[in-house]
């Protein structure tokens, strides 16, 4: 999955338009309920656990930030799977 596909996931779950991946979710118009739904969808999709604190960091609370978080998680987990 690339950023553009990830943005589509955000758009589908949160019913918003991602005009710029770096725009914070809240500025895209995503409310708390949809943020929770998004985190759950991401956890399901990638088989990871999102630390709730991660989203308190403004740099992570955008589609791009969340996608970077997912990728970092995948990178960390990769050796363990070998």
């Amino acid at each position: 999955m690339n950023q553009s596909q990830f943005d589509q996931l955000v758009e589908r779950i949160c019913s918003v338009q991602v005009t710029d991946s770096e725009t914070p979710l809240v500025d895209l118009g995503v409310d708390s309920l949809h943020t929770i739904a998004l985190v759950m969808a991401v956890e399901e999709e990638f088989g990871i656990e999102v630390d709730p604190d991660a989203l308190a960091d403004p740099a992570l609370a955008s589609p791009a930030g969340l996608f970077r978080y997912v990728q970092a998680w995948a990178a960390d987990a990769a050796p363990a799977r070998v």
Binding site: S15, V16, Q17, T19, G29, D31
Partner: peptide, 11 residues
Amino acid sequence: HRSTRTTTASP
């Protein structure tokens, strides 16, 4: 008009 959505989503 789709852009209206983001503005009306403000709290």
